[in-house]
Amino acid sequence: MSGVLVINSGSSSLKYQFIDTATEEVLAKGLIERIGQSEGVVTHEVGDDEWAIEEPLPDHDAAFAAMIRAFDEHGPSLGGDAVGAIGHRVVHGGARFFAPTIVTPQVERDIDELAEYAPLHNPANLAGIRAAGKAFPGVEQVTVFDTAFHQTMPPEAYTYAIDDSIARRYRIRRYGFHGTSHKYVSERAAAFLGLPLEQSRLIVLHLGNGASACAVENGRSVDTSMGFTPLQGLVMGTRSGDLDPAIVFQLARFGGLGLDELDELLNKKSGMLGLTGTADMRDVTDAIAKGDPSAKRALDVYTHRIKQYVGSYLAVLGGADAIVFTAGVGENAALVRAGALAGLEGLGIQLDADENARRVKGERRISAEGSRIPVLVIPTNEELEIARQTVAVVAA
């Protein structure tokens, strides 16, 4: 197989990477934004070169056509047998999909049915699959599900304490998300430490605009912070994370908020955006540096929630071989990492302040020499993980 085209299709955007399967080199990557709007933006990168154009992108078919034109005009060629397979990120696989799966008409129907659990994501993921099928007829397509990695959680971790018959009828349970990232990062962390993956206990903190924690034991997810939907768990860019459910009743009964307004409030107008007016952690840390007390309070709320999950997962795992930070905030925000682990020295967790503050890329250890539990920064690479899983499925 020569190359895998990895697609991450959102409701109004499409990210892609073309990866050489032999070397795992990224041959090209791009981002298509504002799909469905009057004027879209296509950005295509090959090595250090970048091209950007604006053009109408009424739907995902048009976005795929624009992507192919970018490859035609700027390379590398997708012609002939250059594309051996296409790998797609799909957010919600429910309890149906435990592993990467070759696309069939039935798989498409299943993804469509599961859209009720991820209405912002699955329909867009499916649109990308269908557009790819039209653009590359005959090329094998593989779906890699965010939820699949967490299917190894035991019942006590994924079961909510509500009426069992209702839970079964409506498939209410913890599913977890960011599974592709947690899988990749936990494997890289074990390798960094020189530990066999099947003998490791890791706490992975995927901190981006969306954020989740995962307890990984012997390479398997045993608990994770996101739940039935990506709303549960850590404080995020625009999502509230953990919340007393009675708050929803209170806002409905006495605030007069309807279901759609509550959904909008908790998913799109809460988190750091609700606390500070911005969802970008860079803006928050800049405001803290200027002495903004509301930004400092928001960061304290954010890091306190992370600390709660670190302590919880230390208990679930009976200890840990490492705590691992990843994703945009986790990899770049030293202030977040320091706040999340402050005061945990008694648990054997101690950062090296200078190492934590260094702005460098790549895998590294940021814990102090005397720290019993290592603290790592491991950059995530979901596209590469999707490509690897796609190759494995097609080869099988």
Rank of each mutant, 00 (worst) to 15 (best):
Q350L: 15
E355I: 12
A190Q: 09
T276E: 00
S221P: 06
S225H: 05
T147R: 03
D20M: 12
T303A: 02
D280P: 06
H60L: 00
G348W: 09
G47Q: 01
P56Q: 10
D280G: 04
K307I: 08
G328Q: 07
K361Y: 14
R168V: 14
A161N: 07
N122H: 04
V142D: 01
M67F: 08
A334G: 04
I162H: 08
A28G: 06
E39T: 14
L231R: 02
E54G: 12
F98A: 15
D59Q: 06
L335G: 09
G339D: 01
K290Q: 13
I386G: 04
H206E: 07
A132W: 02
F254V: 11
R89M: 10
Y175M: 03
A115V: 09
I32H: 00
A127F: 09
L197H: 14
S221Y: 05
Q151W: 06
L120N: 02
G208Q: 02
L126N: 11
P379D: 04
G319A: 07
A252H: 13
S38N: 13
F228E: 00
F136S: 11
G210A: 14
Q37Y: 15
E33W: 03
G370H: 15
G346Q: 00
L207K: 00
V324H: 02
T159W: 00
D20T: 09
L234D: 05
G277M: 06
T326E: 02
T143I: 13
D72A: 13
A340P: 04
A252Y: 08
A135V: 11
A353P: 11
R69S: 14
L5T: 10
D223L: 13
A338R: 15
R239D: 07
Y175S: 03
V42W: 01
P56W: 07
Y160E: 00
L317R: 07
D146N: 05
W51E: 08
V336N: 01
G241F: 03
D81M: 10
G176Y: 02
T276V: 01
R358D: 09
A157L: 10
P123T: 06
A252W: 07
A353L: 07
G176V: 00
S38Y: 11
T21S: 13
L5D: 01
S181D: 05
N8L: 14
R168P: 05
P119M: 06
P379K: 03
G311E: 08
T278A: 02
A167Q: 01
P123E: 08
P58I: 02
P119N: 12
V4N: 00
S12M: 11
F71M: 05
V394K: 01
D112K: 15
V26G: 08
D283S: 14
R89E: 05
G176R: 01
A252E: 03
A115Q: 09
T104D: 08
T224W: 11
V391D: 04
F98W: 14
D48S: 14
E383F: 04
Q389Y: 09
A396W: 09
G210K: 10
S38T: 12
V316S: 06
Y302H: 10
E45G: 12
K268N: 13
A189M: 06
H150N: 04
I68N: 03
L376C: 01
S181M: 10
V377I: 15
R305H: 12
T104Y: 11
L259F: 15
L257E: 03
G319R: 07
D49S: 15
V6M: 01
I86H: 00
A63T: 11
S270N: 09
Q389L: 10
